[in-house]
Amino acid sequence: VSSEIYQWVRDELKRAGISQAVFARVAFNRTQGLLSEILRKEEDPKTASQSLLVNLRAMQNFLQLPEAERDRIYQ
């Protein structure tokens, strides 16, 4: 997982004009609270716990989908 993931998520929230709650639900089936905590802490993926890595990997995989497909999912 790239250490850029945190910025990618922030950029996607702005680009798509969606809330953290929507992104958390569709990208990795978690709550806004968890996403907020992940973004606030910005732990280095190289030293992250296994559970954090699973979530970061799910977010990264979601962000690799084509933009149009992500936008459809947000609706």
Rank of each mutant, 00 (worst) to 15 (best):
I5E: 01
P66L: 01
Y74S: 01
Q50T: 12
E67D: 08
D44T: 07
Q7Y: 15
W8E: 15
R70K: 06
I18K: 03
S49P: 13
S2P: 11
R25F: 06
E43M: 08
N61G: 09
P45W: 02
A48E: 01
Q60W: 06
N61D: 14
A58H: 12
I18T: 06
S19D: 15
G33P: 11
E37N: 11
Y6N: 02
R25Y: 05
F28D: 01
P45E: 02
I38D: 03
T31H: 11
R57W: 06
Y6S: 00
K14S: 15
L39M: 13
F23V: 01
A58C: 12
Y6R: 03
L13K: 01
K14A: 15
Y74V: 00
R10I: 15
L52T: 13
K46D: 08
E67W: 05
K14W: 05
A24M: 04
Q50N: 14
A16N: 03
L52C: 12
Q32M: 07
E67P: 11
Q7A: 15
G33C: 14
R70H: 00
L52D: 08
A68H: 13
E12F: 04
I5V: 09
G17V: 05
F62E: 02
A21K: 14
M59L: 09
Y74Q: 01
Q20M: 08
E43I: 13
S51P: 11
A16T: 11
L56P: 00
R25K: 15
G17L: 06
I73P: 00
Q60E: 09
F28W: 03
Q32P: 12
F28N: 03
A68L: 10
Q75R: 11
I73Y: 06
E67M: 10
Q75Y: 14
R15A: 00
R25W: 05
S49G: 11
N29I: 06
D11I: 13
V26D: 00
L35Y: 03
R57K: 14
T47N: 13
E69R: 08
E43Q: 14
S36Y: 08
S3C: 11
Y74I: 01
A58N: 11
I38S: 01
I73R: 13
Q60A: 11
L52R: 07
Q7V: 15
F62M: 03
R57L: 14
Q50S: 12
Q20W: 02
K46T: 05
L63T: 03
E69I: 07
Y6G: 01
A48T: 05
L65E: 07
S19I: 03
R57F: 09
S51K: 11
I18R: 03
R40A: 13
S3Q: 09
V54S: 13
A68G: 13
D44W: 00
R70G: 02
L39H: 00
Y6M: 04
S2N: 15
P66M: 02
G33T: 11
S19R: 05
L52I: 11
S49T: 13
L35W: 05
P66I: 04
A27L: 08
K41P: 03
Q75I: 06
S51F: 07
L13N: 00
N29P: 05
Q60R: 08
I18D: 01
E37K: 09
L65H: 12
L53R: 09
I73A: 14
V1D: 03
K46M: 12
S49Y: 04
L65F: 06
G17T: 06
I73L: 11
K46P: 12
M59K: 02
I38M: 10
R40I: 08
L39C: 04
L65N: 04
I38H: 00
W8Y: 14
E67T: 14
S3G: 14
A58K: 14
I38F: 03
N55K: 10
E42I: 01
R10P: 01
Q7E: 15
A24K: 03
E12D: 08
Y6W: 01
N29D: 09
K14H: 15
T47C: 12
E42C: 09
A27H: 04
L63H: 04
S19N: 13
Q64V: 08
A21M: 12
P66S: 09
L52F: 05
V22A: 12
R40S: 14
L34I: 15
S2M: 15
E43N: 06
Q7T: 15
N55D: 15
L53G: 05
Q64F: 10
E67I: 10
G33I: 06
K46W: 04
K46I: 12
I5M: 03
E69G: 05
V1C: 03
V9Q: 02
R72P: 00
A24R: 02
N61Y: 05
A48C: 11
E43R: 07
S19Q: 05
I38K: 03
Q20H: 10
Q75E: 14
R25P: 05
Y6I: 04
S36N: 13
Y74R: 03
N61H: 09
I73H: 09
W8I: 14
L53M: 13
Y74P: 02
Q64N: 12
Q75M: 13
M59V: 08
V1L: 03
T47K: 12
P45R: 02
S2L: 04
V9A: 10
F23I: 02
D11G: 07
S3H: 10
T47F: 13
E12G: 05
L39Q: 02
P45I: 10
F28I: 11
T31Y: 05
L13A: 02
V9E: 00
Q60S: 11
V22K: 06
V9F: 03
Q50K: 12
D11A: 15
F62L: 06
R57Q: 14
L13T: 03
S3M: 12
A48Y: 02
V26T: 09
Y6P: 03
F23N: 02
V9W: 00
F62W: 05
K41N: 12
L13C: 15
N61V: 08
K41V: 07
E43D: 06
L39R: 02
L39V: 02
I5H: 00
F62A: 01
N29H: 07
E12L: 04
R57M: 14
E42V: 05
G17K: 14
A16L: 02
V22T: 08
R57T: 12
Y6L: 02
V26Q: 03
N29S: 09
K41F: 04
R57S: 10
G33S: 14
R15P: 01
L13S: 02
T47Y: 11
E4D: 15
V26P: 02
L65I: 08
A68F: 11
E43S: 07
S3T: 14
E37F: 02
L56V: 01
L63S: 06
Y6F: 05
Q75L: 11
